[in-house]
Each structure stands twice: as structure tokens, then as C-alpha cells.
Amino acid sequence: MMNLSLQQHQIALLILLAACLSVEESMASINSETSGVEIMEEVQKRHQQFPYIYEEQSMVMLDRQGDRDTRKARRFSRVEEDGSVKFLLLFDYPREVKGVALLANRDPDGQTSKYIYLPALGERLIESAGEGSNDSFLGTDFSVENLTGEMLSDHYYARRDDRDVDGIKYFVLDVYNEDDELEQQILRRHFIRQDNLYITLTHHFDKQGRITRIQSHHDLKAVDGDMWRANMILMEDKRQEHQSLIKISRRVFSHDYVPEEVFTAEWLYENYPYIETLEESDAVINEVESLEEVSDEMIEESI
């Protein structure tokens, strides 16, 4: 029930690393003989080309009653020259969670460390350890792996018959654990647009082979040549009847937007310090909340 598994970032960072290190022309032609993993390699080569990424995101979570939660966060990711990867997800909104951060570092030797910073708990980073690469994070329906792509070496890809939906042709790949070559336990099914090699739809399965979640990518934009990015990602949890929507309102591929110091505890403490305060009075809370409601509406409208 708890979802503290930040270890997923490890995988994400590995993917980023792999992608960034192989920025070579990779648009080899794909034909009926091309294997699943080869298609995936093409997908990653094409769409994961930059080492420095800064994103401003809005997250909207919709529960079965139709109630919505809105959060705003910034995502920093950086691949250093020595091969180490740094990742920071920093929350700005709602006000109570401003400064909450997920910080991950992967050393060149492959060791990954993850930390959580909760400003309200005090100026200390709490190391996070755990299992489970497919667990949702911070109350959303996404896992980190869902957002960043999967580690190819950990999986086995079985190519299925191509499909044509509404005039758009798709490659269809079933994803299994790398050691499951007998194709007994399907994890996901990717639908990859043949025209831009972008995964626009993924079905996630449970152990019984039932679809539990559907992830779809929308508002696709070509950001650099053949490289595409989705500005909206929707995850629908079929069992819980929840939905989580991430809208990227701003994305910058620039070294300047991801300075090295943001990945440090000091930077977090300085910018989001712990202030030992007494509880706010109800009047103050109400005033702030009414402002937040207006802000909520504005954010949701913008989304």
C-alpha cells in the first residue's frame, strides 16, 4: 500500500544514460523481420537524445468520484560526462508540499542512491531504499518507469502483428521480463506509431494477464528533428478507476537549466528551508486555501 519506491528512478536514469550515450543516427529501416528489441532500440535512439532536461509539469489526479488533485513540479535530469546521472523531481504546489523532493544519483559504477526531502520534517535527506520498479509514486498512477521508458536489457520484447487504428499504423510489442522468454507473464503491450516511432499507447497487465492500467501519450510535438515528445501523458487505472494526467507546460533541453548544485542537499535546504513554526491559525489557513482554490482553477484551466 505504501508507495515510496524511488528505486524506479534507477531504471529511468539508466535509460537516460543509455539514450544519451547513443546519439547517433539510428533510423534504420524497420521491416517485418525486425525484432521487438530492435524496434525498441530504434525508439530510444530517436527520442532520448539530450543529456540535460528541465521540465515544468502539472499533475492532475482524478479519483473514481471525479475528484481532482492538482500538483505542480519541476523535473531536472542531467547526465554527467563521467556517466553519472542526477535526477530531481521537485514539488512546488500545493503550498503544503512545496519543496518536497525526490533526489537520485547514479554513480558511474552503477550504484544508485535515492533520497527524499521533506521540508516539514527537518533539514535532512532521508535515504530511500526499496523494491519494485513498477510501483506508482507519490500518490499518482504512474511509476517512474512509466514516464521514462524501460530498461531494454531487463526485458524481452515479442513483436506482434502490426495494427492499423484510424488510419495510423502501429508496431505492437509485448513486453516480458528478460528471463521470461517463454512469454508466460506479459507485463505491457506497447503500441508504437510507425510514422515517428513514438510509443503512444501502453497497456499494463497484472499477473492474470488482465489490463490494469492504460497509458496514453498526447499532444505529440517534434522537438528536434526526428525526436518527439508528448506534452500530455495520461494513465488510467482500470481497477481503482483513477486517472493521472501529467501536462508538461515547459521543457528545456539545456545545461543552464539543470545546474549541478540543484542536485545537492544544500541547495534544497537553502531554497526550501525547514522553519519550525507553530501551526497556522485557522484564519490564515482559510485565507491561503481560498487563494489556492483560485490558483487550482487557473491551473486546471491551463491544463
Partner: peptide
């Protein structure tokens, strides 16, 4: 119990909505 409202809110981020439904 957590002492402050902010800490409550920040802890709550670590629960999925379905945990608290």
C-alpha cells in the same frame, strides 16, 4: 501524530489515494 499541517500534507504524498479512500 505529526505536529504540523505541512508535515501531514507531505506525509500524505506517500500514500496512494486508494490507500486512504
Amino acid at each position: 501524530l505529526p505536529e504540523t499541517r505541512k508535515l501531514v500534507a507531505q506525509y500524505l504524498m506517500f500514500f496512494h489515494r486508494s490507500d486512504l479512500d
